[in-house]
Amino acid sequence: MGELLAQAWTVARKDLVLEFRTRTALVSAIVFTALVLTVFNFGRDPTAVPTIDLAPTILWVTFTFAAMLALNRAFQLELENQALEGLLVSPLSRTSLYWGKLIANLVFVAVVEAVGLPLFVLFFDVPVGHVLVPLIGVIALATLGFVAVGTLFSALVIRTRFAELLLVVILLPFLVPPLIGAVQVTARLLGGRPLSESVGYLKLLAAYDIVFVSLASFLFRFTVDE
């Protein structure tokens, strides 16, 4: 187990070092997030619909885009550096390879979300202080689900034609159930509803994460092995 984590961390660190050395992708993703939030502002009539009603949707559409960007970035990294081939030759286990990629992707998305959430609060004047901890919890749960499946599918499409497009198309159905959970819980949190009302959705998110993280880490070897 320790071995797995150590190997995973090696893989993750390599990706993250590459990433933070140039920072281009990260900065682009953050700017993109800010732009999306800005566009949302102009896409609505604040006098007609109170912000609080749209807030969960705005937040989650933005975060979904951010996660898709992160996954595409990871994919680009592979192509440019042919890192995957190099890793496969090494004695790293396939499972730790998956976990390494998952961790790297999660860190990337987490940074983007960490900037996106305060921006969201600022732009839409949505008070989140009183529910910050559960909100971060929901964001973490849903993001883990998106990225777990996305990391597997990134490896799957890498050798196909129109890979980036294919990634989005095959991933989207998988994003819907956690998205439903995330939006509903966020809506309840922002609306000041007690956490007990969100229990069903939270269970859904947790179950999704458990199932798909395990499934993806198991199936990963079939996408990379010869």
Partner: peptide, 22 residues
């Protein structure tokens, strides 16, 4: 690849039901 995607799709079905029901 198709097998991997097919398995994931099959596993998604109960979640689709659960989330849509909720």
């Amino acid at each position: 690849y198709a097998a991997v995607l097919g398995i994931c799709g099959m596993c998604l079905v109960p979640f689709i039901h659960m989330s849509v029901f909720l």
